[in-house]
């Protein structure tokens, strides 16, 4: 009877990230029973920061799109999924290391983003919110189910990376090399982004557009190009996230859903349009997630995350750093 039961978001893959690369029993407490040591908490915080950098990246993309274009893109996570699959394919057929695929992932997703903006988003920018919401949701359905058609519902992942199991153990903590590399790439990307939007003309133009569209136009800035750029870069950032994700996690058609919700939450937390807020928010959520998996029933992890999201929406919709509400 189910019309689309396979595409329901199951909670089966909501495992703590750290489990795949690092088997540390201290993580597996179900709240109350095991005594949580300071070491375990420190571990959770470190892991949270590492994973949080990935969240930040994706959220900054969303914040950029939101800030410049004032549109909520429900399909944001699905571009990440596409990049993830692309990375897996490159690895399977060409042996390209996922971390090296990052620029490719960015480029491809960037182009996809520009096409999407040009042919879909542009048409509904002036439409009432109902149409905007449904249009991006339709996009979500198309992308996600096309992926389902092509690759099937079973998760795929990259195995056999020579450095997959490498871990460092400083001071009794466990840090996996992959996570560190991912965090480094995220930081580098963030730095590049920062330089771009503060030192280049285009980047400054982008910021100007996000602050005051009319004034930007009066200054001779081509708004349409800004939109294309913002969407392209914003989505490209998630593409990088997808490539990074493929290196240590599973890729399946629904994977975008979770990250999409998370990134929305982070952007709201950090204040819409604020890239810095998204950065900080991402790290914070990463830590929060690891801590709550440690201290509370992991199965409820997502529920807690969503619950916090709702609370933020209700009580502080302008976020920690944002100034502008809708």
């Amino acid at each position: 009877m189910n019309i689309s039961s396979d595409t329901d978001s199951r909670n089966g893959y909501g495992n703590v990230f750290i489990h795949k690369a690092c088997k540390n029993e201290a993580e597996n407490s179900y709240g109350g029973q095991v005594m949580v040591s300071a070491m375990a908490i420190a571990q959770a915080v470190i892991s949270g920061l590492l994973i949080g950098s990935l969240y930040s990246l994706i959220s900054m993309g969303l914040a950029l799109i939101w800030g410049v274009m004032d549109i909520v893109n429900f399909a944001h996570g699905d571009f990440m999924m596409v990049a993830g699959y692309l990375t897996c394919i490159l690895f399977d057929y060409a042996g390209v290391d996922p971390l090296l695929s990052v620029p490719v992932a960015f480029a491809v997703t960037f182009v996809l983003g520009i096409l999407t903006q040009r042919f879909v988003i542009d048409r509904v920018l002036e439409a009432p919110p109902v149409s905007q919401i449904f249009a991006t949701f339709a996009l979500l359905m198309i992308i996600r189910n096309t992926a389902l058609l092509i690759w099937g519902p079973k998760p795929t992942t990259i195995t056999g990376l020579w450095y997959a199991e490498l871990v460092f153990r400083p001071y009794g903590l466990t840090l996996s090399l992959i996570h560190i590399l991912i965090a480094v790439i995220c930081m580098v990307t963030t730095a590049i982004l920062y330089i771009f939007i503060t030192r280049t003309y285009t980047g400054i133009a982008l910021r100007a557009t996000s602050q005051n569209r009319l004034a930007a136009r009066l200054l001779g800035i081509d708004i349409r190009k800004m939109y294309l750029l913002a969407f392209g870069i914003g989505v490209g950032l998630t593409g990088i996230g997808g490539a990074l994700l493929a290196s240590f996690y599973y890729i399946f058609p629904e994977v975008g859903a979770r990250f999409c919700m998370l990134s929305f939450m982070i952007v709201v937390l950090g204040g819409f349009g604020s890239l810095f807020g998204a950065l900080v928010g991402g790290l914070a959520i990463g830590v929060l997630e690891e801590l709550s998996a440690l201290l509370v029933n992991p199965a409820l992890k997502d529920a807690i995350a969503f619950g916090i999201f709702i609370l933020i929406l209700l009580f502080k919709p302008t976020g920690l750093f944002g100034g502008r509400e809708t």
């Binding site: 909670n11 919110p129 109902v130 409820l300």
Partner: peptide, 25 residues
């Protein structure tokens, strides 16, 4: 009811997920 258009939609989306997870567990 305090939330406006996009936020209301997002909030209800999140709420739906929360309730589903609660019932699963």
């Amino acid at each position: 009811t305090r939330l406006r258009s996009h936020w209301f939609a997002l909030g209800t989306l999140a709420l739906g997920e929360v309730v589903q997870i609660i019932f699963i567990n």
